[in-house]
Design a protein around this nucleic acid. Structure first.
Lengths: 138, 138
DNA sequence: TTTGACTCTGTACTAAAGTACGGGGTTATA
DNA sequence: TATAACCCCGTACTTTAGTACAGAGTCAAA
């Protein structure tokens, strides 16, 4: 099967070559097999894995969280833990979506006002997102 | 009107006192008036502003982006810029929500499978989020 | 077969977002 | 009026997520 060098994987995924090695060090991607020379041989699956990491990051997950997510994807921990983890993540996602929805509405409102050339006096951005809430730490 | 010291504001918002000073240095909160002694006097509005920063951060915005968001809230830049900025942010938010929705569905699916005690063989987490897409850099 | 492009490792550096600390002044309360 | 608890400033340290670099080996195409 066709394999990629580190540089090719980097180019393919648009990340820095050093980042690939960094992810390997962090355990975000498994250690790939090597040629006798020591060169890494990445299967095409690695491309998807890198994309996954990048998109999850764009969603605001830390590398640690992505590590856990990938452990789930890899079927690593016991089923019970997976379930708990997945449920927590779903709750977390719902909170995020809710907050994003709010911010979106406010911004759309702002655009409308802007269109109407009306002056923005008391902008509602802060009010919309600044209520106290039970902190969702993990 | 009642004002807060730095420590009180920190306690009220649940952030470290040093963080307050840090945010002031970064321009995320305006410089408050001082007592003759040099002690800061924060109006209660600062509480909301800190909460806003924290929640926006939880949504994955960087302090730089939050700075821009707050500039809009403060009515700083010209209306045209606000509009463009707000529209970009809305698009960004829509992408995030879309991706979060996907990840949520996958996790829920995972939970269902877990419930049924079935073994997770080929986890769909990666597949669901690893398609290439036109990168949305700013 | 040589030469330019690539890869290896290990170490060091960077930027962002805080946190901690030391030495000093201030405030509230016993 | 002391004294603990608080605040000031400046500087330095920490963590996360990479990046850069040096010195050495490898590969491929002319």
């Amino acid at each position: 099967m066709k394999t990629l060098t580190t540089g090719q994987l980097a180019k393919e995924t648009g990340v820095n070559i050093e980042t690939i090695r960094y992810y390997e060090r962090c355990g975000l991607i498994p250690e790939p097999p090597r040629k006798v020379s020591g060169y890494r041989k990445f299967s095409p699956k690695y491309i998807e894995r890198i994309f996954f990491i990048k998109r999850a990051q764009a969603l605001g997950f830390t590398l640690k969280e992505i590590f856990d997510l990938l452990a789930v994807a890899d079927g690593k921990p016991a089923c019970k833990n997976i379930r708990k983890f997945a449920e927590d993540k779903v709750a977390d996602i719902e909170t995020r979506m809710h907050d994003l929805q709010k911010m979106k509405m406010v911004l759309k409102d702002l655009i409308k006002k802007c269109l109407g050339k009306r002056k923005i006096s008391e902008c509602p951005i802060i009010e919309s997102l600044s209520q106290k809430r039970n902190r969702h730490k993990e």
